[in-house]
Design a protein around this nucleic acid. Structure first.
Lengths: 139, 139
DNA sequence: TCGCAGATTAAATTCATTCTAATCTATTGA
DNA sequence: TCAATAGATTAGAATGAATTTAATCTGCGA
């Protein structure tokens, strides 16, 4: 009996996205969306949920992450082979990625601009431009 | 008795990289480096080698791709979760990526510029900036 | 309250990639 | 030239992320 009182905006966001607010989805949405900008893997979120006393299967974690992504509540960041990150910041932005630590850090799109991009191949349109600045411990 | 006559520049490139020019490495280097700019997965290269009558184990394909990458003969492009592409174009450039077809296409870095990039987090340095323009079939 | 479409689940499965331990081979120095 | 050996290749097993399956559960509208 706890955490259930505030019929939070999270519930509204789920409904707005056409997602049934089940126990699991609500709990995951709270973890993801009520803690500022985050970058998580499925595994991390699963551990976090367990630690918080929420029993959710890995399959549901994956389902939920993908549904949230389709619904625009999350964005996927492909940065490393063999591991997917999900980003709670859905605003237009880019990333620093440290290959040593696996850490992702947002770069707001403000002030950042790319010029000289050629036209996309004919018959295609641009869906998104991802900029990944790969960094490493250094000077 | 075939394909062995021209003591090709490929052999020199392997030696220069400190890689012993074994039968397998030479064959793969020829497939990769004597056919213009290419983007291949391990699986694709393995099929191609088989088709060319060269028996190379998948383990060797992976070893070779990584060694070539370390040696600067290839570059890895991380674009899709769960699949690594290796790029024979080692010049400074970026990519169009079509999520429908899995097709990669080079964007030369000429004329392309990014402005307004913030400093990397302190204690780190930039290793590389990757720009992936995600496209889809469209208007 | 009931019924069911949609959601969750454990378990099995897939797929890319890496590891292991045994076998082979390019190179070097006698 | 040849034998020794460090490094390379290999089949097959193992790993790990992600997906599928088929059964069970649960929001929610009637």
């Amino acid at each position: 009996m706890n955490e259930t009182i505030p019929s939070s905006p999270v519930l509204k966001r789920l409904r707005a996205a056409g997602l049934r607010p089940t126990r699991q989805r609500l709990a995951l949405a709270r973890l993801l969306l009520e803690n500022g900008d985050r970058h998580v893997t499925a595994e991390q979120l699963h551990n976090e949920a367990s630690a918080a006393g929420i029993a959710v299967s890995l399959a549901t974690i994956y389902n939920t992450l993908h549904q949230f992504t389709e619904a625009g509540l999350l964005r996927e960041a492909v940065v490393e082979p063999g591991r997917s990150y999900f980003d709670t910041n859905t605003a237009d932005h880019h990333h620093f990625f440290c290959e040593d630590t696996g850490e992702l850090q947002d770069i707001p799109a403000h002030h950042l601009s790319v010029t000289g991009l050629p036209m996309p191949p004919s018959g295609t349109e641009i869906r998104r431009v991802d900029i990944i600045v790969r960094i490493r411990p250094g000077p």
